[in-house]
């Protein structure tokens, strides 16, 4: 069996001192998979994603990414270079004046020069068919445009895994369709957190449910 890209064993999280948000979460993500995580509001889906890239510290359990067990910030910094995380609210992610600058931010963090970063960023915008947005002020884009731009801003780092947090939030039907077809063409393995049943059904290769009591339901094929 091929090693998992990301595997999680008995993971638990609780807010400082308070009761568990969830515990006993275990799963593995393999290349080519698109795993959907369903669950009620407040059950910790976003928290789960942020644990995977070390933005929060797990209370218990272990995270293994690309064959390395990750605990320290330094280990997670390495993970973040290979895992692209698209945040729920694009406004939290887009903080540079223009779209192009926002795209360059990640590649520069990977160690590219500014000129190289501009080249790969333009290429990525081209690839997603939004080259015309390059010099637009990201603050003023439409909701759908912002979503595609945030996706571009992590894809440009050529991640092996994508984490998507409620990607269809606040998108109209047209933007949603466009996002779906874009995502379906991507080679990356994905973990998608979403409420949008139809969207998940068309996108995910399997799904699971994060439950309040903690246990991740057994992984099973998508059921409506």
């Amino acid at each position: 069996m091929v090693d998992a890209l990301i595997s999680v064993d008995d993971l638990g999280y609780s807010y400082c001192g308070r009761q568990h948000l969830f515990h006993g979460v275990s799963f593995a993500l393999h290349a080519g998979e698109r795993l959907a995580v369903l669950g009620d509001n407040g059950v910790g889906k976003t928290t789960l994603l942020s644990l995977l890239v070390g933005l929060r510290k797990a209370r218990s359990g272990s995270i293994t990414a690309f064959g390395t067990r990750c605990e320290s910030e330094a280990e997670f910094v390495a993970v973040r270079k290979r895992v692209g995380y698209v945040f729920q609210d694009p406004d939290d992610q887009l903080f540079c004046p223009t779209v192009l600058e926002d795209l360059c931010f990640g590649p520069i963090n990977l160690g590219m020069s500014e000129a190289e970063a501009v080249d790969v960023s333009r290429a990525m915008l081209e690839q997603l068919g939004i080259a015309s947005l390059a010099d637009k002020v990201s603050f003023q884009l439409s909701g759908g445009q912002k979503r595609i731009v945030t996706l571009a801003s992590v894809l440009v780092m050529q991640p092996d895994v994508l984490l998507l947090d409620e990607p269809t939030n606040a998108l109209d039907a047209h933007a949603r369709e466009r996002l779906l077809s874009t995502l379906l063409e991507l080679p990356q393995a994905m973990i998608v957190v979403s409420h949008d049943k139809d969207f998940v059904e068309s996108l995910a290769t399997r799904s699971c449910t994060l439950q309040p009591a903690g246990l991740m339901a057994p992984l099973r094929p998508v059921v409506a």
């Binding site: 540079c96 004046p97 223009t98 002020v137 603050f139 003023q140």
Partner: peptide, 8 residues
């Protein structure tokens, strides 16, 4: 301020 000037 460069950001503010360009964005707004």
């Amino acid at each position: 301020l460069a950001l503010v000037r360009r964005v707004r």
